[in-house]
Simulated scan of single mutants.
Amino acid sequence: MNARRDAEARGRRSETIAAWWLRLKGWRILDTRVRTPAGEIDLVARRGRIVAFVEVKARPTIEEARRYLDARALQRVARAAEVLAPRYAREGDDIRIDGLLCAPKSLPRHLQNVWHG
């Protein structure tokens, strides 16, 4: 149970770092950890006319985090984004799925429009 709690804490820290990284890049965080029957969205962010549903992956290296941003994870995010889009997007907005990779001693890496399902 301790390992699960530690992983949860690491995940929350990574999501906080990811949110601040996006803010520094001009994004406004609309919501965090939004649960739906289809899945959970780590971050919902807006910059101008773009609404991004962001999946945050944290691993020991950026490369390892990228491997975990796989089709299964992105499909889950896409299903949840379909449910949530009416809540956050306005007419004319572009909606996309982004990834944000975190690793110790590395700057976060923002991958834009990673789902083309």
Results as ranks from 00 to 15, higher is better:
residue 38 A to M: 07
residue 50 I to V: 15
residue 28 R to N: 13
residue 48 G to H: 11
residue 47 R to Q: 15
residue 47 R to H: 14
residue 40 E to S: 08
residue 31 D to S: 11
residue 24 L to G: 13
residue 43 L to P: 00
residue 37 P to T: 04
residue 41 I to P: 02
residue 23 R to L: 04
residue 44 V to I: 15
residue 42 D to Y: 06
residue 36 T to Q: 02
residue 25 K to T: 10
residue 44 V to H: 05
residue 45 A to P: 09
residue 50 I to Q: 07
residue 32 T to P: 00
residue 43 L to V: 03
residue 31 D to A: 14
residue 42 D to G: 04
residue 25 K to V: 00
residue 36 T to D: 03
residue 25 K to M: 06
residue 28 R to V: 15
residue 23 R to V: 12
residue 47 R to C: 12
residue 36 T to H: 02
residue 43 L to E: 01
residue 45 A to R: 08
residue 41 I to W: 07
residue 39 G to K: 12
residue 29 I to T: 06
residue 33 R to W: 14
residue 48 G to I: 14
residue 35 R to T: 05
residue 28 R to M: 13
residue 39 G to T: 13
residue 23 R to F: 03
residue 44 V to F: 10
residue 49 R to G: 02
residue 27 W to Y: 15
residue 24 L to T: 11
residue 30 L to S: 01
residue 48 G to D: 11
residue 25 K to Y: 04
residue 38 A to K: 03
residue 33 R to Q: 14
residue 38 A to E: 11
residue 49 R to F: 05
residue 47 R to E: 12
residue 26 G to D: 13
residue 47 R to Y: 12
residue 39 G to R: 12
residue 28 R to I: 14
residue 43 L to I: 07
residue 33 R to C: 08
residue 39 G to H: 13
residue 24 L to Q: 11
residue 51 V to L: 09
residue 32 T to E: 08
residue 26 G to E: 13
residue 27 W to P: 09
residue 28 R to E: 15
residue 44 V to S: 08
residue 48 G to L: 12
residue 40 E to Q: 09
residue 40 E to V: 05
residue 46 R to L: 10
residue 41 I to Q: 02
residue 50 I to F: 09
residue 34 V to S: 00
residue 46 R to Q: 14
residue 45 A to G: 11
residue 31 D to N: 06
residue 27 W to K: 09
residue 27 W to H: 12
residue 50 I to K: 07
residue 51 V to N: 06
residue 46 R to K: 15
